[in-house]
Nucleic acid binder design. Structure first.
Length: 349
DNA sequence: AAATCGGGGAG
DNA sequence: CTCCCAGATTT
C-alpha cells in the first residue's frame, strides 16, 4: 500500500505528499540553529542524539556545549577517564548513556579505525545506540534515508494515522514504525527527520496542539475524528512506591568528605555518592537521629526520601581506593554526583 | 511484555 | 499535581 503515491486516495485538496508539505513548512518554521546542527560531524550528531534520549532540547544544550568543549572528537573521548565523562554528565540523568558513550568511543578507536561506522546497521551494534538513534545519526550526519521513531514522530504519526493505543506496547510500536516508514521520503533525509521532529515539538504538541497551523492537518485522521488530544494513548497509570534512604555526612579533621562510588549498574550507576545505609528507623530501641536535612527526589517509578545524617566513622578504617575517596567540598562538587547529592552538598558548603 | 533507568520543563 | 521528553537495555 504505497499511499503516498496514490494521491487520489487522500482527497483532491491534498495534491502534495506528507513529506513535501512538511519540508516546505520546516524550511520556513523549522529549527536550524541548534548547536549540533552547525559544525556537523558524525561525532557531534551521535553525541547529541544520545544526550537527547528522553531529554528535552533546552536541557541538553548547555551539557552539549560543555561536553564538546572538553571532548571535541572521538579520539579525545576515547582517551578520557570515565570519571571525567561522568562528571560532565552529572545532573543529566540516565547515566548508562554516559558509560555507553565512553565505551563506544573506545570500541571505535580499537576496532573501527578510530571512526564511527557510517551505516545504521553497524551503529546499532554499539552500546547505547538503538534502532531510532542509529537511523537518526545516519540521517543527520550522512543524509541517508532512514526512519526514526522518537517521541515526536510517535505523536505525529499516531495522530496523522489515528493509531490508538499506548506506543509502549510492541504491537502499537510496530504499526507506528510502519506508518513512519510510509511517510519517509526518498530524498532530503536530513531535512525531513529534522522537520518531523520540529513539527512534533512546535505544532503537534502533547497538549494544546496547533492544528490550525499544521501543514499536514488537512489529512490528519485524528483531527477528522476529534481524537487529537487523545492520541497517542497514555501509559497505564501506576502508583509510585515511596522509599527512604539515609546518606551519611562523614568528615575528617581536615573537613574532607567521604564519598563512595556506586556500582556500575542500578540507580546512579558509576556516580560518586555519600555513603548510604538502609533506613534504620525500624529499630524501636534506638531513638531517631535528627537529620541535618531531608530531601525528596522523584524518579520515574518511585519517590525517594533522603535523610542526611552526620556520622563519625572511624577514619582509620577507610582506605583511599577505587570505591571510596576523601574529597573537599569543591572537589566533590566537581565530580559525577547524583542531582540530589549535589543539591545537598551545595546547601552545606 | 514489562521493568528499569534521571531529571526537569511546562501545563 | 500531571504528563512526557530526539529511547535503550535488562529481565
Amino acid at each position: 500500500m504505497k499511499r503516498e503515491k496514490v494521491k487520489g486516495k487522500r482527497g483532491k485538496t491534498n495534491p502534495t505528499s506528507f513529506a513535501q508539505r512538511l519540508l516546505e513548512w520546516s524550511d520556513v518554521h523549522g529549527r536550524h540553529d541548534l548547536p549540533w546542527q552547525m559544525d556537523r560531524s558524525d561525532y557531534r550528531v551521535w553525541l547529541s542524539e544520545i544526550m537527547l534520549q528522553q531529554t528535552q532540547v533546552g536541557t541538553v544544550i548547555d551539557y552539549f556545549q560543555r561536553f564538546t568543549a572538553r571532548f571535541p572528537d572521538l579520539d579525545s573521548l576515547a582517551k578520557a577517564d570515565l570519571d571525567e565523562v561522568m562528571a560532565l554528565w552529572s545532573g543529566l540523568g540516565y547515566y548508562a548513556r554516559a558509560r555507553n558513550l565512553h565505551k563506544t568511543a573506545r570500541i571505535c578507536v580499537e576496532s573501527h579505525g578510530g571512526r564511527l561506522p557510517d551505516s545504521a546497521e553497524e551503529l546499532q551494534q554499539l552500546p547505547g545506540i538503538g534502532r531510532s538513534t542509529a537511523n537518526a545519526i545516519v540521517a543527520q550526519a550522512h543524509d541517508q534515508r532512514a526512519v526514526i521513531l522518537d517521541g515526536n514522530v510517535k505523536r505525529v504519526v499516531a495522530r496523522h494515522a489515528a493509531i490508538e493505543g499506548w506506543p509502549g506496547r510492541s504491537a502499537i510500536a510496530r504499526v507506528l514504525w510502519k506508518e513512519a516508514e510510509i511517510r519517509t521520503p526518498p530524498d532530503r533525509a536530513r531535512d525531513y527527520t529534522q522537520a518531523i521532529m520540529d513539527l512534533g515539538s512546535g505544532i503537534c504538541r502533547p497538549r494544546q496542539p496547533a492544528c490550525q497551523q499544521c501543514p499536514v492537518g488537512s489529512d490528519c485522521m485524528a483531527l477528522r475524528k476529534g481524537l487529537v488530544t487523545e492520541l497517542p494513548g497514555k501509559r497505564p497509570r501506576r502508583t509510585r512506591p515511596e522509599k527512604t534512604t539515609t546518606l551519611l555526612l562523614i568528615e575528617d579533621d581536615q573537613g574532607r568528605l567521604l564519598l563512595k562510588r556506586r556500582p556500575p549498574t542500578g540507580v546512579w550507576g558509576g556516580l560518586w555518592c555519600l555513603p548510604e545505609i538502609s533506613h534504620p528507623d525500624s529499630d524501636p530501641d534506638k531513638k531517631p537521629v535528627e537529620p541535618l536535612l531531608t530531601l525528596r527526589h522523584d524518579f520515574t517509578h518511585f519517590r525517594l526520601h533522603i535523610r542526611l545524617v552526620r556520622s563519625g566513622l572511624n577514619e582509620a578504617s577507610i582506605e583511599e581506593g577505587e570505591h571510596h575517596a576523601w574529597m573537599k567540598y569543591d572537589q566533590a562538587l566537581a565530580t559525577g554526583l547524583p542531582r540530589p547529592v549535589r543539591t545537598m552538598l551545595e546547601a552545606l558548603s
